[in-house]
Simulated scan of single mutants.
Amino acid sequence: MKTLSLREPGRFEFIDTPFALDLTEGEALVKIKKVGVCGTDLHAFRGRQPFFNYPRVLGHELAVEVVEIKGDSYGLKVGDRCAVEPYLDCGQCQACRRGLTNCCEKLQVLGVHTDGGLTEYLKLPTGKLHPSNRLKEEQLALVETLAIGGHAVERAAVSYEDIVLVIGAGPIGLSVIEFVKISGARLLVTDQNADRLRFCQERMGVHEVLVADETLTTRLQDQLEGYLPTVVFDATGNPASMMKAFDYCAQGGKLVYVGLFQGEVSFHDPSFHRKELTLLASRNATTHTFRTIINYIENGRMDTTPWITHQLDFDTLPCTFPSLLDPAQGVIKALVKVA
């Protein structure tokens, strides 16, 4: 079975892996159709991804087709097209028993802690497959990306009364934007990249954008008639941005870290207490978010069309993947066609 392995930072290699049909109860064999390229994959290629070991088969944003099922199928049928929930939880730890499967103590994320979807076939638990025969493969491959933003907005309990600032207009920031729009909250987006802000305006329907610089706090107050955002999402994974984000929050506001980096965050404790801020981490997503997103796309409440800027071929990926790191390429979301 043809598999693409990231052997070490910066070096992919095609390898032959065994194809086995020895399914256990509650497993399905799936054929990989499309794989989304995520910031996690880019960080791993650079050698900057936390909790990561080499060699590793990347790929956790997956559109698949069910080939075989054994036992409990959760209603799945052979031939179903599915989005994959790539968070393989233990089901037994304290977090799992509280329904927090996204932060299971023994969590194995496909393509990060265990081998992922840059291969021809995978065996997966049937409960991690979310079918929709109405969605295209391209749409199914984007469900996991959207789930990251969906979970973050849910964590913050955003309502229509909030003023929301999203820092970072990459794919994770865009996924947050989608759900903030649905909440009805006032939305502002900031990024250092003017092209990404233009994309938000022209393709995502965002009306208020600001270029990120040292005057951002003042310009936010000017735009908001003296107020500041009640909820701030930092989707950059940039330490300087994440630590500066405390300044943008209103009194009694919330700061949500969606991105992460390998290092420590520090902040001025008296200011944090004076504002009585709530600091939240957001990790992965839970099952119901996947089903919600599929329903939204099926019913036209979310349009994934603007997201896909690059289509790549599996066979030539070792050659084309490095180009995704070049800002001049204007990558929003790249998809790899496996089959």
Rank of each mutant, 00 (worst) to 15 (best):
T114I: 00
I32S: 02
Q108M: 08
Q192L: 14
V153E: 09
P171N: 09
L62T: 03
H268I: 00
C96P: 07
R46V: 02
V143D: 06
T215W: 11
D234Q: 10
S175M: 04
V66R: 05
Y227I: 02
L142G: 00
P229K: 08
F179C: 13
L224A: 12
R155K: 07
L122C: 06
E208R: 15
I293A: 12
A169Q: 09
K123R: 15
G10V: 10
K33P: 05
D315C: 06
Q192E: 11
L279Q: 07
Q311E: 11
T305E: 12
E298N: 11
L140Y: 02
D315F: 03
A152K: 05
E105T: 04
G117H: 00
T218Y: 08
K128M: 14
I15R: 02
Q192N: 13
E178I: 01
A235P: 06
C96H: 04
K123G: 14
L210R: 10
D315T: 06
T278W: 05
V189H: 03
K34Y: 12
D222R: 10
V164H: 10
L312D: 04
P239E: 01
P131A: 15
S323K: 09
S323P: 05
G99V: 04
E137P: 10
H273S: 04
E65D: 11
M302G: 08
S73A: 15
A235K: 08
K244L: 13
P125R: 14
L260N: 07
T305S: 15
D195T: 09
E264P: 07
V176L: 02
A235H: 04
P18E: 05
V66G: 06
E120M: 03
K31G: 14
V258M: 08
I148Q: 00
L124C: 13
H310C: 02
E161L: 03
H207Q: 14
E264A: 11
R196S: 13
E120I: 00
D115N: 05
C104T: 02
L146D: 01
V231G: 05
T40V: 03
L129V: 14
